[in-house]
Amino acid sequence: MAASAASSKDRQFLAVIGDEDSVTGLLLAGIGHVSDGPDADKNFLVVDSTTETSKIEEHFQKFTQDRKDIAVLLINQHIAERIRHRVDAFTDPFPAILEIPSKDHPYDPEKDSVLKRVRRLFGE
């Protein structure tokens, strides 16, 4: 417990993997953070139909494992579907992964990794 508590201290950003509209909206809310320097590191990824799944996975890996300053990762549910195995396999408490609905894909609680666990625990 102590270790995770300590590491949660410097987590202060949110990250987002989403379609253009979701990302735009969330950036408007002010979550966007781009580090300085030539290889500017963004904390958001815009996914459209042409984005390769491997790229999504790579960013998922980056946001969840490599970067230690991200507290919450928001990901559109339909994108989470594309890398479902990765999302399901990720069970660490940090960063928290949140599946959010997107404009064109209304929220489906049946697919949510966490809610699935909730349901299972209550034997529904």
Binding site: E20, V23, L27, G32
Partner: peptide
């Protein structure tokens, strides 16, 4: 969208 993405620099909203 594009303009917003490009002008994002510092996170205003943090946790």
């Amino acid at each position: 969208g594009y303009q917003i993405q490009e002008s994002a620099k510092q996170a205003r909203f943090r946790v």
